[in-house]
Design a protein around this nucleic acid. Structure first.
Length: 481
RNA sequence: GGCCCCAUGGUCAAGUGGUUAAGACACCGCCCUUUCACGGCGGUAACAGGAGUUCGAACCUCCUUGGGGUCACCA
């Protein structure tokens, strides 16, 4: 049975890159009918952020990534939070010492600091490896603070087979005697991930390429303990641009932010699935089940990929269009509420107009703000090349529209009739009238609908008021000329 | 800097010795059209450079260049 895991550290919101790692681990497990495990790596007490664990649960749930085992759902390999496994690590560290794979180190920070070479590169010199058993015991008895270090070979090569990168070889003298257990008794990642992955029966370790060249170290621990090494799948990073990795520091790189901008959760998931992987047939829009079915290691790329929000927007628009009007309206409603439109306008009609025009829900703000704002606007807006019109041509049309609309009951048909008749009477193209009236009504270069729709939306009173006002603006401008 | 890894249009990417080098986003043009979108059609645009191997190289090898990762009592 294949078992994969996602092992984030609770240090803040969940980053898009991390989410993609979780996704791939999930897809791989599900594709092979295996289990996906969530483990919280909170061994660094200083970086721990309150609430971050809940944020991880929330993000995973919204993304549609469900773990079979984890702190909140249980499982047979718990606890799934590393800080609760402190004793386990110490137990195995002691065993590793017995097997010669690790040793106690009593060096203080000062001595360590003095180890820097001419280039400032610090490297531990295995000083405490030379301590005799008795010396170690004496120091331990005396209650000296200690750390446990991994004992690396100093010559030869170590290699392993990565499922996406192939054979990776690293000279052993590049490997440092990393700290496995810190003075506070907590393990470092270097040790905890190995112990846990083994104890939790993880068959495939899926993580970022930052571990690509340190993986031989971990394998050395597996070997020293007599454990079987897992399979590895390292994933290239997601970049903000050519040189910068996508990171929290640059902002907007986390899942929650995109949700708040009006992205649909699955659109985000779909997009990031495609960042660094592509299905054989190059299909771009895939449901979670389709992702599971199509996922394969062959499609994973080896080089970093740049995050392109524009493309994610396009995908999001595809998903929005697939929503039913009711679904769209439900989501849009919260935006209308924020804009205080709910009791003033026919929001269902608004949704009909907006449904095909939004790429992300936050587009709603800019596309309907004219409903509540109507001030002076540039008369240049009346100019339209294809309609062959401008504000001078618009003036009589607006005057006529004002007269005609005063007389009628507002319905789609009646407004249409009235405006059509004006065009006939004035001998202009219908589009000219429509365009002029629409601009006079909204003061915007573009709106989520034409003249009739805008008039209906605004209602008779407001429409007449705006036409009047727009007319005055034109007259005032002519006066100045 | 040492070590590990990577390299197809602006971006995501097909492609695994013989292709007119796909497709998508973005961009541009045309059509549709009561604005703007949607949609339809079309277009611009790539194998980083240099040596090899081969009848033949985007695909194999080497070098250069560029990029990423790593070198913590962080994960």
């Amino acid at each position: 049975m294949i078992r994969t895991r996602f092992a984030p550290s609770p240090t803040g919101f969940m980053h898009i890159g991390n989410l993609r790692t979780a996704l791939y681990a999930y897809l791989f497990a599900k594709k092979h009918k295996g289990k996906f495990i969530l483990r919280i790596e909170d061994t660094d007490r200083e970086r721990y952020v309150e609430g971050a664990v809940d944020a991880i649960y929330a993000t995973l749930r919204k993304a549609g990534i469900f773990h079979d085992e984890g702190p909140d759902v249980g499982g047979g390999y718990g606890p799934y939070i590393q800080s609760q496994r402190k004793d386990i690590y110490m137990e195995y560290a002691l065993k590793l010492i017995e097997r010669g794979g690790a040793y106690y180190c009593f060096c203080d920070k000062e001595r360590l600091g003095s180890l820097a070479d001419e280039k400032g590169v610090k490297r531990y010199d295995k000083h405490c490896l030379k301590l005799s058993k008795k010396e170690v015991q004496d120091k331990l008895d005396a209650g000296e603070e200690f750390v446990i270090r991994q004992n690396m070979p100093t010559e030869g090569l170590s290699s392993y087979e990565d499922m996406v990168f192939g054979k990776i070889t690293v000279p052993n003298d590049e490997l440092e005697d990393n700290i496995l257990i810190k003075v506070d008794g907590m393990p470092t990642y270097n040790f905890a991930n190995v112990v846990d992955d083994h104890l939790m029966g993880i068959t495939h370790v899926i993580r970022g390429t930052e571990y690509l060249s340190s993986t031989p170290k971990y394998n050395l621990i597996y070997e020293a303990m007599g454990w079987q090494t897992p399979n590895y799948m390292h994933l290239p990073p997601i970049m903000k641009d050519q040189k910068r990795k996508l990171s929290k520091r640059y902002g907007d790189a986390n899942f929650e932010d995109f949700l708040n901008k009006g992205y649909l959760p699955h659109a985000i998931v779909n997009y990031i699935a495609l960042l660094g992987w592509s299905p054989k047939d190059n299909q771009e829009k895939l449901s979670m089940q389709e992702l599971i079915d199509a996922f394969d290691i062959d499609g994973i790329s080896k080089s970093p990929s740049i995050f392109d929000e524009q493309k994610m927007k396009w995908l999001n628009a595809q998903y929005i269009r697939e929503l039913t009007l009711e679904e769209f309206h439900d989501i849009a409603l919260s935006y209308y509420q924020k804009m205080d439109l709910v009791d003033k306008f026919d929001t269902l009609k608004l949704s009909q107009l907006l449904h095909g025009r939004c790429e992300v829900f936050s587009d709603i703000y800019n596309s309907v703000d004219f409903l509540t704002e109507f001030g002076d606007f540039d008369l240049g807006l009346y100019y339209h090349k294809r309609m062959k019109t401008d504000f001078k041509a618009a003036k009589p049309l607006i005057e006529e529209a004002l007269k005609a609309l005063k007389e009628i009951e507002f319905t789609t048909d009646s407004i249409m009739d009235a405006l059509t008749r004006i065009s006939e009477k004035m001998g202009v193209k219908k589009g000219q009238t429509m365009y002029s009236v629409r601009v006079a009504l909204t003061g915007r270069a573009s709106t989520p609908g034409g003249a009739i729709e805008m008039a209906e939306l605004l209602g008779k009173d407001e429409s007449l008021r705006r036409l009047k006002k727009s007319l005055e603006m034109i007259k005032k401008a002519e006066h100045k000329l």
